[in-house]
Amino acid sequence: MRVFYWVDHHGSNFGRLIDRADWSGPGAMAFPRFAATVLPCRLISPSPRVMGAKNVTKRPFEAKRHYRSIPLTNSDHWGVLMRAALAGNAVAYEALLSELGRSLRVYVRNLLSRSGHGNADVEDVVQETLLAVHLKRGSWNPELPFAPWVNAIVRYKVIDALRRQGRRVSVPIDALAETLSAPESVSEDASDVDRLLHRLPARQHKIVRAISIEGKTPTEVGLALGLSEGNVRVILHRALKHLAAGLRSKKS
């Protein structure tokens, strides 16, 4: 498995991802002397402001808001991952989405417990939000930090989802302990996405199932169904759009 490290340059908010394989073994690169901190990618690196950068946004008015209102993270290393993803790096993208998912789960669970809801729908809200981030990622300007954008999207989607759930029967929690951790909920209930998946056209359903649940690549799916890889990707994209639309119009 490849491990990436996030390297912050000293005294600025620039940095980059470095593959660990480049540091060890034959033909290894010299350890970067300029690095102030070297963190495994999983950890959240300190905010650029802590690192000494004065202003991280181009728009002067938004610089302050950016740090005050972030429930999720305080560094732009997600931005680095997203830039890599937009340049076509699927590994970086998957890493980004799972990190986002983990943070989101905590965030949504806290919100739900604070508003007196149970934990049942956390995964649905997380999935809907991830879908929204995915489909709207073209609206992020890669020259700006990632956090304000993703927080705006997350806040909007989570509030939207909670408002919809407000009309449902919800189970109030008795103990606060239930809100503490457990990284992935292992409930075997059919999720909203599952229910919607059955309503997709047959080919879209097959492709989404094959790629997500059976873990196949688009090329393998294409071979199995007699389609080109490009075709499979287009159908997958359409299916995801349908799923998002279905989740949005979902009634209680």
């Binding site: 989405l97 790629i211 287009v234």
Partner: peptide, 20 residues
């Protein structure tokens, strides 16, 4: 569907709709 599974299909979708 688990979130992990959903993420796998999201990661395989490389089409970015740029809003104009």
């Amino acid at each position: 569907m688990k979130t992990r599974d959903l993420i796998r299909s999201l990661a395989n979708d490389a089409i970015v709709d740029a809003p104009r």
